[in-house]
Nucleic acid binder design. Sequence first.
DNA 1: CTCCAGGTTCCGG
DNA 2: CCGGAACATGGA
Length: 305
Amino acid sequence: MFPPSALDPADRQRIQPLRENLISLPVTINLTHTLESGQVFHWVKVDDGMCGWMEDQLAFVRSTADGLQVTAALQDKARQYFCLDHDLGAIMSSFPKDDMMQASAKFCEGMRMIRQPVWECLATFIGSAQKQVAHIRQISARLRLFLGETAGYDHPMLYRFPTAAQVAAADLQTLLQCGLGYRAKNLLATARMVDAGAIQLEMLRELPIDQARQQLCTLPGVGEKVANCVLLFSCNAWGAFPVDVWIDRVIRELYLKRKRRVTTTRVRDFCRDYFGEWGGYAQQYLFHYARSRYKRSAKLRAGEH
DNA sequence: CTCCAGGTTCCGG
DNA sequence: CCGGAACATGGA
């Protein structure tokens, strides 16, 4: 199985400093829901916590009754990364109280949004098209191992995610070996455009959401769905609402069940109007709940929640 | 083996 | 704007 599900003994020893001087940030957070719900794909379990990159810093985190624990030196980074400035309670209460939304809120209690680096998010989601979450993890691990810089650890996920320049300098063959399939040429072309300055990723955060989305969609392999993932997960656009196959099913079967001729345009407009300015959170909760339920039961059907 | 996965792009109605 | 089909790869 790739990547390895656990750290080898040497890595466990090496990350020990990250587990010292832990402080508790008093917030509501469920790390399993937050880090394993398809927002990010690179965290690895270590004992009772998890290890992974918060932007350019490798960290160990764990949740306890006191809140989120992280080594003191990285507390500011953690506040930023896990969006601890967001009032989860206020956000959740801003959503309609329909059955599906309430069931999702209950199941995903403590799930937070993550502020990701723009390039890493963009590259990862270009590779996510028609791929299972487990496979997206595999691609992330191989990109790190083949193209990223080592940080002195053995585990592939503890290598740095390759920069746009590093991906741009790669050949197609290497990207194919990462398991990207037909997405390889899109990632390569996008990396080269970013590296050449055809688009300023950091500037996207300053633009109105529609302009930012328009720019993102000029990149090969980036359509509306991937663009919305980038906007939501890395550009502070909390109303961005990615519609993937799961969300599409949820909306059509639960929210627009009696409607006729439900087109993709109509699904998109409904989501924007119904869930509001924090809709991205609602989307992530619905996505995670729908997938978790599917794994246990047979099929997504109205009335089962 | 078949089916499907956090889609995008191109093409004819 | 809308529906279909092609596009690679691997887990279930």
